[in-house]
């Protein structure tokens, strides 16, 4: 059974979102997503300072098995990417909600956070798969 921390927000494309306060969020992929992907071997990070809309394809995670797009879960500007992943992409598997985070964003509109799924809603979503 994959972990779905209660304090995070989620989108159906399997990204998690943590509000760090002041309209800044950290984004990664869920435990369920990393299980589906298998061993991650390469992460193509998004461009910093880029303005993105929700659902934009902004990054790529490659496992041995397949390539998978990472979508912006919410509109905003990319402020930071996890440079650790360049050398250690396997952190996405070993610690998806911690050291395996992907990027940080400054939100265009904090109210957008209310449109995201709760952990219960996400759990229900993946149970249907």
């Amino acid at each position: 059974m994959s972990q779905i921390p209660a304090e995070l927000k989620y989108v159906s494309s399997h990204e998690w979102i943590r509000h760090e306060g002041d309209g800044v969020v950290t984004v990664g992929i869920t435990d369920h997503a990393q299980e589906l992907l298998g061993d991650v071997v390469f992460v193509e990070a998004p461009e910093t300072d880029e303005e993105v809309a929700a659902d934009d394809e902004i990054a790529v995670v490659e496992s041995v098995k397949a390539a998978s797009d990472i979508y912006a879960p919410i509109a905003g500007t990319i402020t930071e990417v996890n440079e650790e992943l360049e050398e250690s992409p396997e952190l996405v598997n070993s610690d998806p909600y911690g050291d395996g985070w992907m990027f940080k964003m400054e939100l265009a509109d904090q109210d957008d956070l209310d449109k995201l799924m709760s952990s219960e809603e996400y759990a229900e979503e993946i149970a249907d798969e």
Binding site: G38, D39, V41, V64, K65, N93
Partner: peptide, 8 residues
């Protein structure tokens, strides 16, 4: 079986 954990 696709893998038993880590294919690597």
């Amino acid at each position: 079986p696709l893998n038993y954990g880590s294919q690597i």
